[in-house]
Nucleic acid binder design. Structure first.
Lengths: 304, 304
DNA sequence: TTAAATAATGCTCAGATTTAGCATAAGTCG
DNA sequence: CGACTTATGCTAAATCTGAGCATTATTTAA
């Protein structure tokens, strides 16, 4: 039995959520768990930090799975232990590192910052409707559609940004993502959705990581791991929006951040472009402990 | 490399939260991951169901760890994958199964149903205070006490029932639990707290499971996996209270349950003892899907 | 038979939180 | 200077929560 580590390594650059990939964007970075490390997490940290030249601010285990399919030999399992980790894309010199991709490249339907993405009404809803109709009896048909509608915020249902994994799994079941097809099995291409696929079950792991992060930012101050030392509240908000895939109400966002005393003013203001200059803030790392224990909230009300 | 499965198997019987143990209550049930199963979860399910003669309603992975310490040979790791699973203690005939223990036996300080347990003021607070004082400088001392106070709800701090793991780890660091001591290392016994220890890191795993479950019942309808087919709202409430380790406000509890349409009346009433008979309810399994997707809430306000 | 005692339920209220906007201030740009 | 952009202050309304009062239905003890 062998153990692999797989990482969903997230950064937010220029208001876009990014993940580190390998294999021309078809895989998540992965490596064997080498026994010369004390623990799994230590092993992961060492390995990722060597690749990115950035300390990992936040690391969290996602899920462990063992799939026989993934191994050549029958009866042989590879155990994969997946992690979510937060970092920054650019190194100290601001140089771009290769391999980073926008995560909405893999999940175009997850980005609701500009409202419901066209792909949902144009492609996903019809596909899921067709899938619903394939069910044997009318009860199963309506159950399928119910599920589809709730998961994707169709009909009267609200969009819930945390259901990234459920949505992916639904699309998988409905066989409208290429991963659901075996090797060279039919002309899938025609019926496929936009959104890049990945090898193995890496897109599923990515979905798990996205879901976890979207849930986490609501009650733990992890966003700050993605920010540079000083930032404006708008930058902070845009980072949250990038991750959550939805717009936030600006005034309420600010109120909550300041109310919880998560940040302090640096005294500086932004030098740049148009509009009134924004005050700069820094994260009060000293509240880390309290908040990590007590919990905190980020507002996720809709915007506009 | 070898993989073990460890299960925190929870039931609530007679208003008490119970866990399945082995080795005279010194260990959690564990077994090797056998390769003749498709997945980890399938393997765990099969194995536990054989032991308990109960289908597992709810299974969730907790954490995977690899500790060199746990293995004899240097450089050899055993990977342990821990799970939380919910079931019922009694089999169909109502016969008691061996090995079940009250979980507060291992964590007496976690049961606040009758208010703050005496052990906190009498033993834990003094021990943690002493530990704080051992720190080198005054900043570290006050940081230690701050942490202790927040974690255990001392001073002005609120008790947070979800911090089971943090509390255990704090006690471990302060070396007031026997697991923190090496084999036969000194007369620990004198300074030890009430609360049964476990072998390996099983008490830590149990703490992880308790914490996860306490968090989960607040937003997923998992309590129902622990109930029998029909139940009164008081029984339901007492089950939640048993898990959460705190009392709830009865009227508010009912309001939330009914408001969310999680249950439906069976038309029956309880036959038993004192007081006005209670209506019996059953869980509306058909809302399982919606709720599993949409989330739901259990109230956890204090009672009295 | 009646007075506790025990539970179940119905309702109300005040305070806190959340959502959605309005209004204004302080800059940049053409 | 006027249009435009972004930052910020404030508030009203709706909802959610925590607490507690009051009443009803049964069992048990006096």
């Amino acid at each position: 039995m062998q153990a692999d580590l797989v990482a969903v390594l997230v950064a937010v650059t220029g208001g876009q959520p990014r993940i580190l990939t390998t294999g021309s964007g078809r895989a998540l970075p992965a490596g064997p768990f080498t026994s010369n490390h004390r623990s799994l997490q230590a092993s992961l940290r060492a390995w990722v930090e060597k690749q990115t030249h950035h300390p990992l601010g936040f690391v969290e285990q996602l899920y462990t799975f063992a799939d026989r399919e993934r191994s050549q030999q029958l009866g042989m399992h590879v155990i994969s232990i997946s992690y979510l980790a937060l970092t920054q894309e650019l190194d100290e010199t601001g140089a771009a590192q290769p391999g980073w991709q926008d995560w909405y490249r893999y999940f175009p339907w997850e980005d609701w910052r500009e409202g419901m993405p066209g792909v949902i009404a144009e492609r996903i809803a019809p596909a899921l409707h067709a899938w619903s109709e394939q069910a044997s009896d009318s009860v199963a048909r309506s159950a399928r559609w119910q599920r589809a509608a709730m998961t994707f915020g169709l009909d009267e249902h609200e969009w819930n940004e945390e259901l990234v994994l459920q949505r992916y799994e639904l699309l998988f079941e409905a066989a409208v993502v290429p991963e659901a097809w075996g090797e060279g099995e039919g002309d899938a291409a025609a019926s496929l959705l936009p959104g890049a696929a990945m090898g193995n079950d890496h897109r599923r792991i990515l979905a798990t990581g996205m879901a976890r992060l979207r849930a986490k930012i609501k009650y733990r101050p992890v966003v700050f791991e993605l920010m540079s030392e000083e930032f404006s509240l708008l930058q902070l908000q845009q980072t949250v929006e990038a991750l959550a895939g939805r717009g936030l109400h600006k005034q309420n966002f600010r109120r909550l951040i300041e109310q919880q005393a998560l940040v302090e003013e640096t005294g500086q203001v932004t030098a740049v472009g148009a509009g009134r200059p924004a005050k700069l803030f820094r994260f009060r790392r000293n509240v880390m402990l309290e908040r990590a224990i007590a919990g905190n909230k980020l507002p996720l009300a809709r915007s506009h």
